[in-house]
């Protein structure tokens, strides 16, 4: 499903200096599995996630998604880009940024409206995910006024409602209290299915142990290693 072939990413940190964020990364990620990406700060996890989401592009190497190469040129095509983002859902580390609608239910409906789904289908999905993520009491509230845990649930609902094949979660339990962490952990476990791939970046090894089928380790040298 996802294939990274010798992917490197470099950016200009100062006018005279190039910095390497990803160094020759090759990996193959399959459907039905949950991958946990771990590594020290600054090792390139966020850059890798940006590439996987089509927000940045490799400076060398290839990113193949479902048999199609994801490049800057291909993502400039609105239909291609829409089809890609429909299949890849991304929950940002700071949910506050990801939530831009006026109410929680509008937030969940936003992506579905962009997919041009019929109104009845949109309403049914909004209801389903409001129930699933226990957002009933805050459905009419502005997302940016919610607590961290509520924002995280709202962001999850908004992304899951689009029914993506690949779900990418950047630090899903950071900033949550113990109860919130436990809830997210069990929710992610329940989310696992043969037709969905989950990729999670986390610093918490105990959380990774609980949810991961496979561990991906990034090193300080911006390379990737695997473990079962």
């Amino acid at each position: 499903m996802i294939e990274l072939q010798d992917v490197s990413y470099r950016y200009q940190s100062t006018p005279m200096q190039d910095t390497c964020a990803l160094d020759h990364i090759t990996c193959h990620l399959d459907m039905g599995r949950c991958y946990c990406l771990q590594g020290p700060n600054g090792c390139g996890k966020s850059t890798l996630f940006r590439i996987l989401n089509g927000l940045s592009f490799p400076t060398s190497g290839h990113y193949i998604f479902n048999g199609m190469e994801i490049t800057e040129k291909s993502m400039r095509n609105p239909d291609f880009s829409k089809n890609f983002h429909k299949q890849v859902g991304f929950v940002f580390q700071h949910s506050e940024i990801q939530l831009f609608c006026k109410t929680v239910e509008e937030e969940i409906a936003f992506g579905l409206q962009q997919l041009r789904l019929p109104d009845s289908e949109i309403e049914a999905r909004v209801e389903r995910y409001i129930q699933l993520l226990h957002l009933e009491n805050i459905r009419q509230r502005a997302p940016f006024n919610l607590s961290g845990g509520e924002q995280k649930r709202c962001a999850l609902a908004a992304v899951l409602a689009m029914d993506p094949k690949v779900l990418i979660l950047d630090e899903p339990i950071s900033g949550l209290d113990e109860e919130g962490q436990e809830w997210v952990t069990s929710f992610i476990r329940d989310l696992k299915s043969p037709d969905r791939m989950i990729i999670i970046a986390t610093h918490q090894s105990s959380f990774a142990e609980k949810v991961a089928d496979m561990h991906l380790q990034m090193t300080k040298e911006h390379r990737m290693t695997f473990s079962g």
Partner: peptide, 18 residues
Amino acid sequence: ETSEAMACRCFDGEYRSY
């Protein structure tokens, strides 16, 4: 970041009310 988040949710410029 907001524009990227919107792109990730297939935003195509149309802003409709729910």
